[in-house]
Amino acid sequence: MSGRSRASIIMVIALIGVLVFAFGSWYIGTRNNLVQLEEGIDAAWAEIDNQLQRRSDLIPNLVSTVKGYASHEEEVFTNIANARAKLAGAGSVAEKAEGYNEMQGALSRLLVVAENYPELKADGNFTRLQDELAGTENRLAVARKRYNDQVKQFNTKIRIFPGSIIAGSMGFEKRDYFEIDEAARTAPKVDFGS
Rank of each mutant, 00 (worst) to 15 (best):
A97I: 01
R54I: 08
E115H: 06
A114F: 08
E73M: 02
M103Q: 11
A70W: 06
V66D: 04
G99M: 08
A83F: 04
A85Y: 01
V112P: 02
A106T: 06
N79C: 01
V66N: 06
Q104N: 14
V93G: 02
F77M: 05
S64C: 01
V93Y: 02
E102M: 14
A94L: 15
L62G: 10
A106R: 04
P118A: 08
V113M: 12
A94D: 15
I59Y: 13
A83M: 01
V76H: 04
L107N: 03
M103T: 09
Y117S: 04
S56T: 14
V66F: 08
G68S: 07
S64P: 00
K86I: 00
P118T: 05
A90S: 15
E73H: 09
L62T: 10
L110K: 07
E75C: 03
Y100S: 14
G68W: 09
Q104C: 06
E74C: 00
T78V: 13
L87Q: 06
G99N: 05
S92R: 10
L58M: 04
I80E: 03
L107Q: 06
M103H: 03
E95A: 14
Y117A: 04
A88K: 07
I80T: 02
N82W: 03
L87G: 01
S71H: 07
E102S: 15
S71L: 02
A106E: 03
A106Q: 01
